[in-house]
Amino acid sequence: MATKNWPLWEVFVRSKNGLEHRHFGSLHAADAEMALENARDVYTRRNEGVSIWVVESKHITASNPEHNGELFEPAQDKVYRHPTFYDLPDEVKHM
């Protein structure tokens, strides 16, 4: 039998309730169950988490950095999306 290597998985950990899952790193595992167990052993040894997501790396679709210009730059000059764009008299507090 030709050796097939364990695929790569990405690990996301929620450090505590109230916080989002954050990308912690990756690891190898044969299946999802093993990926979860490995993630627990590798990435939460020091009490770092209360919840884990794993997803096989090949299922992630990433944007291409070459398209960064068209993807992200158009948002740069839309200052009206930010509160500081709007002038208010100084007397108005808490808005």
């Binding site: 050796t3 364990w6 044969a30």
Partner: peptide, 12 residues
Amino acid sequence: RDAAMAYAEKQQ
């Protein structure tokens, strides 16, 4: 390692 892959495929 081979066994774990074979098992994963069977389960799938």
